[in-house]
Simulated scan of single mutants.
Amino acid sequence: MRITNRVHRPSIARAVGAARSVGALALAGAAAAAVLTGCSMEEAVCGGGEYPVLSVGGTGSACTPNGEEPPEGYTRYPDGKVPEHVGDEWDTYWQTHTVDENGKVVQVPEGG
């Protein structure tokens, strides 16, 4: 039998390392779940139950409740050209284009 004057306790460094590992594992799991479920970290143009509408003759936009027509001065985006997330292809496109009063897609004049 061996007798020592040391008390065997888990070191603080080992406990901190284990906590970091658990935290990192949880974060990695959450990120993987977001990717696998199609969840996006991008900001949606409109909230749930709404769809985006475009200002006629300008680059402004708004969100309209599903099932309702766009408010006066606004129109629906053309099919296939609807922005879904802030900064996506169509959100960027509509910063320089609009729909005129005849429903034609036109480029917005500079400064307009």
Results as ranks from 00 to 15, higher is better:
residue 12 I to N: 10
residue 26 A to F: 05
residue 66 N to W: 04
residue 110 E to R: 11
residue 86 V to E: 15
residue 35 V to L: 13
residue 77 Y to Q: 01
residue 63 C to E: 04
residue 58 G to H: 10
residue 40 S to D: 12
residue 31 A to P: 03
residue 32 A to N: 14
residue 23 G to W: 11
residue 41 M to G: 15
residue 75 T to F: 04
residue 45 V to C: 12
residue 37 T to G: 08
residue 81 K to A: 13
residue 35 V to Y: 09
residue 92 T to A: 11
residue 32 A to Q: 12
residue 69 E to K: 06
residue 94 W to H: 00
residue 26 A to E: 12
residue 33 A to K: 13
residue 100 D to M: 06
residue 70 P to Y: 06
residue 69 E to L: 09
residue 54 L to P: 00
residue 10 P to S: 12
residue 85 H to Y: 14
residue 40 S to A: 09
residue 14 R to C: 06
residue 14 R to L: 15
residue 104 K to V: 14
residue 11 S to Y: 05
residue 46 C to A: 06
residue 33 A to R: 14
residue 95 Q to S: 11
residue 87 G to W: 06
residue 22 V to E: 13
residue 14 R to H: 10
residue 57 G to D: 02
residue 80 G to A: 06
residue 99 V to R: 00
residue 49 G to P: 01
residue 43 E to I: 09
residue 87 G to A: 11
residue 109 P to H: 14
residue 84 E to D: 15
residue 35 V to W: 08
residue 50 E to W: 00
residue 72 E to K: 01
residue 43 E to P: 00
residue 69 E to R: 13
residue 41 M to H: 15
residue 28 A to P: 00
residue 65 P to C: 04
residue 58 G to W: 11
residue 92 T to Q: 14
residue 10 P to A: 11
residue 87 G to Y: 05
residue 94 W to Y: 02
residue 94 W to T: 02
residue 70 P to S: 03
residue 72 E to C: 07
residue 68 E to Q: 12
residue 57 G to I: 02
residue 29 G to R: 05
residue 77 Y to W: 03
residue 107 Q to Y: 05
residue 34 A to C: 07
residue 60 G to E: 11
residue 77 Y to M: 03
residue 58 G to Q: 12
residue 54 L to H: 03
residue 85 H to I: 02
residue 92 T to G: 05
residue 73 G to R: 08
residue 54 L to G: 02
residue 104 K to F: 07
residue 69 E to N: 13
residue 79 D to M: 08
residue 99 V to P: 00
residue 62 A to N: 05
residue 73 G to A: 07
residue 82 V to L: 07
residue 51 Y to T: 01
